[in-house]
Amino acid sequence: MTGTAPETGIPAAYTPGPRPQRETAEQLRARIPGWGADLDPADRPAVPRLQSLETGARWDFPERQPEKWPRERSIEHAVLTPVFGTSCPPAGLSGVIRRYSYRRFGEGRAAHWLLLVAADRVDAWESHLRSFATLRPDNPVTQTGVRSELTHAGLSSRIGRKRADVGHHLLDPVIVAGPWVAGMGAAYVGVRRVLRAVRR
């Protein structure tokens, strides 16, 4: 089907239209469950965009949740919001970077977000290193779920499937393992240099 008007051979885009229809409303109603149930554009939940609805709120401004530590917030907010999440307060070097990013840059600045991404990576390394001092160190095999490649059709889900993402799947192990390999390499070089210096 090319969408070309049969009487002229010229596609509809080059003529006044309308666009040729493939099926009538009756045919669609017979073929598709519920076809046209929301046909009236004015009778849809998202229309109009702004609506005053009963929400269940009995307050104009909610009671404030106690602030148990100085809660970081966007400088685009006038005040701390009355309710907020309390997961994972900022800590360590990543916390210093996060607090600086919130204190210094607004949401429109790329520096704000790039610092937060950098803090995320620092946080991951801090957490990995801390985990080695516990009885449950990080384990990249169990935590990546990569064993499911063996139990859930890892190869057959990809081979011969014309999937566009298979090529860059090879990058995933590099992203996960690369920093570990680089870190171990740097540690090895560092230790070797220290030992050489001591021997001299």
């Binding site: 965009r49 702004l50 609506q51 005053s52 609805l53 929400t55 269940g56 709120a57 307050w59 104009d60 401004f61 909610p62 809660r71 970081e72 917030r73 966007s74 685009e76 907010h77 701390l80 919001t81 009355p82 309710v83 907020f84 919130y102 949401e107």
Partner: peptide, 23 residues
């Protein structure tokens, strides 16, 4: 929250009273 400027107009996903980290 159900009561801020945005919630009062049905834009619940844009609530201004629950996310201090971003507006």
């Amino acid at each position: 929250c159900g009561s801020c400027w945005f919630c009062a107009r049905g834009l619940y996903s844009n609530c201004h009273n629950v996310n201090p980290n971003a507006t």
